[in-house]
């Protein structure tokens, strides 16, 4: 009887540790594992959507990017921190500065910690190649804050209290072949933190 209780308790602890570590991994990990690529604050994984993807990459994709296309069609970069590595939070303002990207179409979309779009009074969730207002050098500046100013804003949805974590996803559809071959050489937008409320 005593042994059965011990075995039962040991089993429950194992299940807790085993499943708990999976949950922690899926919530905290980015794509920088096997096949992972980091460009400034942005990370991606060449195996996304790939039949040969490693089990951990496949699990992250299922949790954070279900129905993601493979690299041949689209490359997805995520940023959960700014240029200095500080996590993105909704009560701070950020300036995202980019140059033209070698791709058929691109977009930058803001997501909450639950991986869904954040409600905001402006009803704006993203900026994209077809909507962005460019500067004289064909580059662009996107203001990310609770009340972004200028033509290229993305609201964080912050209203009061403590800010919450958010992330940005950069989608690159139909990358030019040379660029797709060497993702780490891409020049991706910088994310500079400004004032916080």
């Amino acid at each position: 009887m005593k042994l059965a209780l011990k075995l039962g308790a040991a089993f429950l602890v194992s299940v807790f540790l085993g499943l708990g570590s999976v949950y922690w991994f899926l919530e905290k990990s980015d794509f920088s594992g096997a096949g992972g690529i980091a460009v400034g604050p942005w990370t991606t994984n060449e195996q996304i959507g790939n039949v040969d993807a490693a089990p951990y990459t496949r699990a992250i994709v299922a949790r954070r990017g279900l129905l993601a296309l493979n690299k041949r069609e689209t490359v997805y970069f995520n940023a959960e921190a700014d240029n200095s590595g500080t996590p993105l939070v909704s009560n701070c303002a950020y300036t995202v500065t980019g140059v033209p990207l070698p791709t058929g179409w691109w977009s930058i979309t803001l997501y909450g910690a639950d991986h869904y779009l954040i409600d905001n009074p402006q009803g704006i969730f993203s900026q994209a190649k077809n909507t962005i207002v460019r500067n004289d050098q064909r580059g662009y500046v996107i203001q990310v804050s609770s009340t972004p100013e200028g033509p290229n804003g993305i609201p964080t949805g912050y209203s009061s209290g403590e800010g919450s974590r958010f992330s940005l996803t950069l989608r690159l559809y139909n990358l030019e072949e040379d660029a797709a071959e060497e993702l780490s050489a891409l020049v991706l937008p910088s994310i500079e933190r400004g004032m916080c409320q």
Binding site: A10, V22, V61
Partner: peptide, 26 residues
Amino acid sequence: VWSAAVLSLAVIIHIIAIFAVPNVIM
């Protein structure tokens, strides 16, 4: 011995779950 057994089983459960997650979510 008990700690090693618990940790070993936890690792096995972790690996099985990682493989199962995509199928379960899809």
